[in-house]
Amino acid sequence: MKAFILLLIPISLLTLSSYAQEGVVNLNNLIVPTSPGFVILDKSPASIEKPVSPKTFGVSVLRLLKQNEGGLDFTPYWFWNHPNLTFKNYIDNRSPILQTLNLSLAASQGDSASYLSAGVRTHLLRIFSKDKISDINAIEQDIITALSTDPDNLDLEELTRLKDKLAALTAEPRLSMELAGAMAGFSADNKFAHLANKRYGAWLNVAYRPNDKVPLNLLGVFRYTKAINGSIKSSDSTLIDYGIAASYQQQKFDIQLEYVNRNDVENHEHYNRLALVGNYVVANNVVVVASFGKNFAETENIIALFGVKFGIANEKLSLR
């Protein structure tokens, strides 16, 4: 059954790609970034993350077929109104640290042991090309014109078209840089009182889009991790990761191939990770993620991960 479901993922990615071409919503606006708590534990689908705008709330459920793994993240800035934050101010802000400051908790629980981790991430830099800024300003003016009428006369189809066009433009900066950090505790007997710090670290994700017209991003990561009584070697480890990735994106899916090299400084060991990661938007703010490849560890290092991520822009949910 597990193998069958895993086989379905790439097949569905291929068969549904025709629908993706017709999609009008940009993936970067729908996708939910993986909690840093998963990244620090090497349990995230991707080791190199493209910086995307976090939602007010996000929920991740990973590794559905193996053990309980889930994460919860939130962006406090959007809990409150910001009357003076105009669209222009937001787009012109090249360092949206507060707007993207995202806090998260992640947990991984097996039959006898648990990991609990906390993480933080924020965008240090976001730069749009001059052409893109010009296009964004033009669409903004078109939207203002379309909105400047009585509410009964609004052309909703035209507004939807303009809004989707704007979303596609604003989701693709030329250069973006994200700083993230996390710490993870481990309990060998699933008791909270026995939770002890196992790992902590910080890293920088960089995304560069060479050409506005080609949906290809080049990604990079530099990460420092301190592993206490590490999982790879029994002694403490200082791990330095650096890696690159290429991400090809359509409007409803993206595929990323990544390679990360890990240096265990204290134990003079090298490891690497090679993974193919896919995200597919199945519904608004619901993203299926799958990852396959080889992880860092020397044993049990096959990555075969399947999960679902939810993004929630509203702090209130209503059941209808």
């Binding site: 003076n84 105009t86 669209f87 203002i144 400047s148 009428t149």
Partner: peptide, 24 residues
């Protein structure tokens, strides 16, 4: 008129029944 929360808005302004401005 200021639109916050990084959203986009347009306006129609009337005095009595006479429209005096629209847009930003």
């Amino acid at each position: 008129v200021t639109i916050g929360n990084a959203q986009i808005g347009g306006n129609v302004v009337r005095i009595g029944s006479k429209q005096i401005a629209k847009g930003e």
